[in-house]
């Protein structure tokens, strides 16, 4: 933390709102559930490998839904898989987010018309926070989507909103 060292000499105190700290901590450690379904998963893997290095955003793939904050649905969701996705989503601890990666999980993608076994959009079974278009989206697009999600987390309030 060379940056901060030079700013504060002995008294390391920053004053900010609790909400700010909490959200900052949360958005910098969005643990991801590694949930590769189809072709988009390869781009997700590429995003977590050397060139794009998604881990610098604090995104660490975890195999278990219980430890995750964000589920990246990367690929085609089929009807056979839909109930499993729902189950896995329910197993995640709140607050939880869903990133829908690729046209397939957004709306059925190339399979929208004749795909008798393809779910036309993962939002038919679970709520989605960020949609990333593309077939497949480039890893940069995934990073962009992630930053959009971080913005969303940053603007969240810990206090439940009162009805106006």
């Amino acid at each position: 933390m060379g940056l901060l060292d030079k700013k504060f000499e002995n008294s390391n105190i920053i004053i900010t709102s609790l909400e700010g700290v909490m959200n900052w901590a949360r958005l910098c450690s969005l643990w991801q559930m590694s949930f590769g379904l189809a072709c988009c998963a390869i781009e997700m893997m590429a995003a977590s490998a050397s060139h794009f290095d998604i881990m610098r955003f604090g995104v660490i793939p975890r195999p278990s839904p219980r430890q995750c904050d964000v589920m990246i649905v990367a690929g085609t969701v089929t009807l056979k898989m839909a109930s499993r996705i729902r189950r896995l989503y329910e197993q995640m601890a709140e607050p939880r987010y869903v990133l829908s990666m690729g046209s397939c999980s957004n709306c059925g993608g190339p399979y929208w018309n004749y795909g008798y076994h393809v779910l036309k959009g993962v939002d038919r079974v679970i709520p989605v926070d960020v949609y990333i278009p593309g077939c497949p989206p480039r890893p940069e697009a995934l990073l962009e989507g992630l930053m959009k999600l971080q913005e969303k987390v940053r603007s969240e309030s810990l206090v439940e909103e009162k009805a106006a």
Binding site: A38, T76, T78, K80, M81, R84, Y114, G115
Partner: peptide, 14 residues
């Protein structure tokens, strides 16, 4: 298997 059955053959017919 079949969790990623995307109906390639049906698309090919259409």
């Amino acid at each position: 298997i079949g969790y990623l059955h995307r109906c390639f053959e049906k698309h090919a017919e259409n």
